[in-house]
Design a protein around this nucleic acid. Structure first.
Length: 600
RNA sequence: GGUUAUGUAGCUCAACUGGAUAGAGCAUCGCACUACGGAUGCGAAGGUUUGGGGUUCGAAUCCCUACAUGACCA
C-alpha cells in the first residue's frame, strides 16, 4: 500500500483536531496545498477553518497543530507558521522511501479496470457525411479520446461510440449536385479523398442554390420565398422523399457516396490515432424515438397540441416548451436522440453512464434531452453527461464553411507534418534513421504538437487557433515534453541503465531539484483522479509539462550530472529517478493520446 | 428580448474550486556552451485579474450591477 504524504499528514491533522479541540472532521475535508516556493515546506495546511473550534488565533492554532504532528509523526522533520498557514516539511528519508515505493509500481498512477468495473459509454466525433472533417472536429476527437483514456485510467471500462449523421436534406444536397455536375466522378477517377470529393459537391450545390435565389429575387420574389422555391431546393426535397421511400436509384447513390466518405474518414481517424468500439448510423436510428414519444404521451410526460404536434413542458425546470414530434408525425433531432439513447442502453444493459462529446452550442439541447430521459423514468438518465467543449475560433472569428474560413483536418495534419520534418532535419539529430523511422517520428512529433496544443486548454473554454502562425515546438508544447523524454532515454542509454525492480536506490543527500521531482510524481494519482472527475485533459497536460520542466531544471544543475557522477549509489539513484520521470511522462502523454519517442 | 457561458501580461493559456507577493510559454532584452542531447536552463521587463459596488480574517474565484464577446432559445 502506497504511503502518500498527504494521507499520513491528513490522519495526523485529524487526530490533532480531535485531541486538541475536540473537533471531529472527515479525513477528506482536510486538504493540503503544495507549499509556495518562497516558504520552507512541502505541504501547507490552512488553519483558518479551525480557529472557531480552537478558540485561538490562527497562528497559535497552527503552532499547536504543528507541534502535535511533530511529536506524533516521525516523517515530519520541521514546520513553520506564517500567519494562518502551517508549512510542513517532511524528511528526506520519507521522500526517498516514497520514491523507492513508486519505482517498483508498474503503470504507477493508473487504476486498472476489470470485468466488473463500471461501464461508461462515451460518444464522440459525430460527423456529417456531406463534408470533410475540420478543426472543430479535431478538438472533438482529441477531447473525446483523451477523456476516454483518462476514465480508463480511473478504473472504468470505457466503450467509445460514434453516431454518424448520414441522412437528411444536407446529404441530399451533395448527392443532387453530384448527379447534376459530377459526370460520374469518383475518388479513383479524380484522385481525391472521398470525403473531400463529396464535400466539393456540397459546396457546388450551395453555389447553384444561391444563384437561383438571386435570380428569383431579381424577378421580384422575396428572399424567404425564393429560398423555399428555388428549383434546386425543390429537387432536394423530392430526393429526400424518395430516399425515405427507399427508391433504389437514390439509395444506391446514397450508399455509394457514403462509402466514399467513410473511406475518407477512416484515413483521417487513423492519422489522428482515434478509434471507436461501436458506430451508430442515424439512418438506422432516426425512427426509434417515435415509439418512446408515444409511450411518454400515455404516461403524461408529453402533451399534444391542437395541430397534433407533441411537446414537453419544461417550464418548471426553468426551460421552456420543446417540440418532440412535428404535426405531420416526423421526428426532430431530439426525437432521434431519445431513440438512440434508449437503443444504446438496450445494447449495453450494464452501462452506468453515457457521455456525449458535443460542442457547447448544444448545451441547451442536452439539458432538454436529459430532462426528458429522466422524466421518462430511465434509471441511467441521471448519469448522462454532456462533455461540452468550446468552439475553436480563428483570428477573424468563427469558422464558417460557407465563407471558406474552415481549417481542414487533413490539410492541418499535413502542414504540421511538414513543419515537424523541416524542424527535425534542420536540427540533424536523427542520423541513422531509416526513411520509415523518420516518417514515423515526424508523425509522432507533429501529432504531439497539435494534440498538446489543443488539449492543454480547458475543454469548456473556447480557444483560438491562428493557422498563419504554425504551432510552436518550443516552450509549453508537446515536442518539448517529447524532447524531455527522448533526452532521458538518451542518458539512460549512455549510462547503460536497465531498470531492475529489486534495485535498492537511495542517496545520502537529496537535492532540492531531486526532491521536487519526487513531489511532482507524488501528485500523479491525484491529477489523474481530478482529471477524471472534471473530464479535463488539460489538467494532465499541465501536469506533464510541469514535470518535464522540473526535469530540465534538474538536468541543468551542473553538480547533478548523472553520467559523470562517481558515487555509484548516487548515480544509480539519479538514473532511477530519471527513468521513473520518463515513465510518468509517457503515462501522462498516453492519456492525451500522444506518443513519446525514444529519440528525436 | 430571454437563457447561458466567457472576460487574467502585447499574444496564447494557468491558478489545486475562497488562501500567502496572481503563475507559465511565446514575442522583447540580457546571460549560461570542455554539452549526460541547446527542441535547454537562468535573469530582466511586462498585471488596478473589463469597470463599479458588496459579502469576510482573506476575492481572479461567491453575490449584485454595468459593459464587451460568443452560443443557444424564439
Amino acid at each position: 500500500m502506497l504511503t502518500k504524504a498527504t494521507d499520513i499528514l491528513g490522519v495526523q491533522v485529524q487526530k490533532a483536531l480531535a485531541e486538541l479541540y475536540q473537533l471531529n472532521v472527515e479525513l477528506n475535508t482536510i486538504s493540503f496545498q503544495q507549499t509556495k516556493k518562497e516558504f520552507e515546506g512541502d505541504f501547507t495546511l490552512v488553519t483558518f477553518p479551525y480557529v472557531k473550534a480552537s478558540k485561538k488565533g490562527p497562528e497559535q492554532t497552527a503552532e499547536e497543530i504543528g507541534n502535535y504532528i511533530k511529536t506524533h509523526c516521525k516523517e515530519l522533520i520541521s514546520f513553520n507558521v506564517v500567519k494562518g498557514f502551517l508549512n510542513l516539511l517532511l524528511s528526506n528519508d520519507y521522500w526517498q522511501s516514497f520514491f523507492a515505493e513508486i519505482l517498483k509500481i508498474e503503470n504507477y498512477g493508473i487504476i486498472k479496470a476489470n470485468a466488473t468495473s463500471p461501464l461508461v459509454l462515451l460518444e464522440y466525433s459525430s460527423p456529417n457525411t456531406n463534408k470533410p472533417l475540420h478543426l472543430g472536429h479535431v478538438r472533438n476527437h482529441l477531447v473525446g479520446y483523451s477523456v476516454a483514456e483518462i476514465l480508463k485510467a480511473n478504473g472504468k471500462r470505457v466503450s467509445k461510440t460514434c453516431i454518424v449523421n448520414d441522412r437528411g436534406v444536407h446529404i441530399c444536397k451533395s448527392m443532387l449536385a453530384w448527379q447534376k455536375f459530377g459526370n460520374g466522378e469518383t475518388p479513383e477517377s479524380s484522385g481525391m479523398k472521398g470525403d473531400h470529393l463529396v464535400g466539393k459537391y456540397y459546396v457546388a450545390f450551395d453555389k447553384q442554390y444561391k444563384k437561383e435565389i438571386e435570380e428569383l429575387v431579381a424577378q421580384g420574389m422575396s428572399k424567404e420565398e425564393a429560398e423555399k422555391k428555388a428549383p434546386s431546393m425543390l429537387e432536394v426535397q423530392a430526393m429526400l422523399l424518395k430516399w425515405e421511400d427507399g427508391d433504389s436509384e437514390v439509395m444506391n447513390l446514397w450508399k455509394t457516396m457514403n462509402s466514399w466518405v467513410y473511406a475518407g474518414f477512416d484515413v483521417t481517424y487513423k492519422k489522428l490515432g482515434v478509434d471507436f468500439d461501436s458506430t451508430y448510423y442515424e439512418s438506422n436510428t432516426y425512427l426509434l424515438g417515435k415509439d418512446i414519444v408515444e409511450e411518454g404521451l400515455k404516461k403524461g410526460v408529453f402533451f399534444k397540441k391542437d395541430d397534433g404536434s407533441v411537446w414537453i413542458d419544461l417550464t418548471a425546470e426553468g426551460l421552456d416548451q420543446k417540440l418532440v414530434l412535428r404535426a405531420d408525425g416526423t421526428s426532430v433531432y431530439i426525437t432521434q436522440d431519445i431513440g438512440t439513447a434508449a437503443l444504446r442502453y438496450k445494447d449495453n444493459p450494464d452501462v452506468t453512464q453515457m457521455i456525449y462529446t458535443v460542442g457547447n452550442e448544444q448545451d441547451y439541447h442536452f439539458k432538454v434531452l436529459f430532462h426528458i430521459l429522466i422524466k421518462m423514468g430511465y434509471a441511467w438518465a441521471k448519469e448522462c453527461y454532456h462533455l461540452s467543449y468550446g468552439m475553436v475560433e480563428l483570428p477573424e472569428g468563427k469558422m464558417k464553411s460557407r465563407e471558406g474560413t474552415v481549417v481542414d483536418a487533413d490539410d492541418l495534419l499535413q502542414g504540421m507534418y511538414e513543419t515537424a520534418e523541416a524542424t527535425t532535419s534542420e536540427l540533424g539529430k536523427i542520423d541513422g534513421f531509416s526513411e520509415e523511422e523518420a516518417a514515423n517520428l515526424y508523425r509522432t512529433i507533429s501529432l504531439g504538437a497539435l494534440k498538446y496544443f489543443i488539449l492543454k486548454v480547458d475543454p469548456k473554454k473556447k480557444m483560438l487557433f491562428d493557422p498563419k502562425e504554425s504551432i510552436d515546438f518550443n516552450g509549453n508544447t508537446g515536442p518539448f515534453i517529447q524532447y524531455t523524454h527522448a533526452r532521458i532515454k538518451s542518458i539512460l542509454r549512455k549510462a547503460e541503465y536497465t531498470f531492475n525492480k529489486s534495485d535498492v536506490v537511495a542517496t545520502t543527500t537529496l537535492h532540492e531539484k531531486e526532491k521536487e521531482l519526487i513531489c511532482l510524481m507524488h501528485e500523479l494519482p491525484n491529477v489523474i483522479q481530478e482529471a477524471g472527475k472534471t473530464y479535463s485533459p488539460a489538467l494532465v497536460a499541465n501536469y506533464v509539462y510541469e514535470l518535464s520542466k522540473a526535469y530540465s531544471q534538474f538536468y541543468n544543475v551542473p553538480e547533478l550530472n548523472i553520467v559523470r557522477e562517481e558515487n555509484a549509489a548516487v548515480k544509480k539513484f539519479r538514473l532511477a529517478l530519471s527513468y521513473k520521470c520518463s515513465e510518468v511522462i509517457k503515462t501522462g502523454m498516453k492519456l492525451l493520446g500522444v506518443e513519446v519517442p525514444e529519440r528525436m
